[in-house]
Design a protein around this nucleic acid. Structure first.
Lengths: 295, 295
DNA sequence: CCAACCCATACGTTTTCGGTATGCCAATGG
DNA sequence: CCATTGGCATACCGAAAACGTATGGGTTGG
């Protein structure tokens, strides 16, 4: 069962004549006649009534015609769909994001994406610090919006922005009355720590910052998300040092203050499998840069 | 875009390996590899990710796979459908019937047909004496249930029964009190005549009968259907001589009586185009014979 | 470091397809 | 009534495509 034969068959059925169909197919009449007879032999039944004034479909031919033209359309549509996906006009883009960035970035990013790639099915998935690397590697997500970037040889990273660290405390804290808080004022206070993804669960993203200023903060709790961190801060468990953008998701009763003479920041990055050939990645990158531009 | 390539593609996609797919397709691995690459060249995009442990569909490949397997299924289904129609397991059978036979034959015929050819779309169309020949020739109906048979070189006829002529009159007629009516009693009475289809509108189907018995009946009216004839008989316009089966459709106030010493009858016949290759005709013939058997 | 596995490439053989030439049949027209 | 025309079928040849065998290259696992 050859698709070419079906194409020929449909052409003959529509032209009601082998000669006319051959002309439209830009081929000679005899080989077309041969192909039609071969198709009939393959089916095992005549598909046309040969009249003296052309060809006419038998009922068996009509039954075949309906399916054949549909199959034909599906085949070309399949090819076109594959091309569309390969070119990025259609397809699926699964976006992973870390919760810190959700409030700050997604409201700008999602509409921008929908405008840029209207034919693409978008899917969003929250990533945790512990699973984000695996989700990128196993293609659970096409791209990941991370802070900080993933560090892995198979994963490509594009830095699209950064967020300075800020001090996070309850509104009632005496430090909240200050403007930029001197690092020295933090010495000895309990810290709600987020581990740095690259350095294991016992680490903290702000260890280098504290060490540089010779400030020691005992770690009161270790949490996975900025949200948890802010909850514990609100509960009076301690202070946190979080990227500025977390402020957008902060509950009532929490304030953010800059740290005086501190320029440390966490990178915002787009990460994807180095061997991913999805053409949507560069489009996504543009959208993400735009969304992060004036944070 | 070749259906073979699509078949190969689907096989490789399902086996997730060229080697395995080649085995299932009973061919060597290299040509299959070549065909897949040719398909990718035709599409213009890679359809598989080549890993060291086999092949894996890209998103473009997934988009193609859905359509390709559907197209494949449609192609084989089309072939199967054509075979089914050619063999008579499926298809359409358009049955033409003349009104005289409707009441007597259809109630038996239709259930019998539906049982015999359950996959076939049945269609019934009433035929008039003037158009029945044309409807068979132009394939408006596949078969025609006629009385009498159609007489035409292109039309094949199978006689499946006959109906004797009977005298039709109002219940109030004095002749209705007799048993078999002697032909001589009809002499001079007005006749409601049905034209014989073969002999033009000015003929009558009972001319030979009357002539043989040397009976003359002036023609009061010419009508097209037995129904009209009976209406006029009821209205007192004259007598009619109709095939016995018309009795089943007779209105109240009409009686049928046999004619003494008369064995003339009208054939019931199935008629179809001699060049029609519908396998349903012989099945229909069996059903029609059964339906007519004990009229 | 070698063996196993899997895909890609190369080349010769075979199948199949398309083109040209021609025959056959029926309908049409003088 | 014969010639012409229009349409499909058959025969043969050259070209293209596909298949099989042999072989190379890269990665995984022992």
């Amino acid at each position: 069962m050859d698709l070419r034969r079906l194409r020929y068959f449909v052409a003959v059925a529509e032209a009601r004549s082998i000669g006319k169909a051959a002309e439209r197919l830009r081929m000679a009449q005899p080989p077309l006649s041969v192909q039609i007879r071969k198709l009939e032999a393959e089916i095992g039944a005549p598909l046309f009534r040969r009249g003296t004034r052309g060809m006419d479909l038998t009922e068996a031919g009509q039954a075949l015609l309906a399916r054949a033209s549909e199959a034909l359309a599906l085949a070309v549509d399949g090819a076109e769909a594959a091309r569309a996906v390969a070119s990025g006009r259609r397809g699926r883009l699964s976006v992973g994001y870390m919760f810190v960035l959700a409030n700050a970035v997604l409201p700008r990013l999602i509409p921008e994406l929908r405008r840029s790639v209207p034919g693409v099915d978008l899917e969003f998935a929250e990533l945790s610090a512990t699973t984000r690397e695996a989700r990128v590697l196993d293609r659970g997500v096409t791209v990941a919006l991370c802070m900080p970037a993933i560090n892995h040889p198979e994963i490509q990273v594009a830095r699209i922005g950064a967020q300075p660290f800020m001090l996070v405390m309850p509104t009632s804290s005496p430090l909240a009355r200050l403007g930029p808080v001197p690092m020295a004022r933090l010495h000895g206070r309990p810290l709600i720590a987020l581990p740095h993804p690259d350095h294991g669960p016992a680490s903290s993203a702000v260890v280098p910052l504290l060490r540089r200023h010779q400030v020691v903060m005992p770690i009161a709790s270790r949490v996975e998300t900025v949200h948890s961190a802010m909850s514990l801060v609100l509960a009076g468990e301690g202070l946190a040092i979080l990227p500025a953008c977390a402020q957008l998701g902060a509950p009532r009763g929490i304030v953010f203050r800059p740290l005086r003479d501190v320029t440390d920041s966490l990178d915002i990055a787009v990460c994807w499998r180095r061997d991913s050939q999805s053409p949507l990645i560069k489009t996504f990158l543009k959208c993400a840069e735009k969304a992060v531009a004036r944070l």
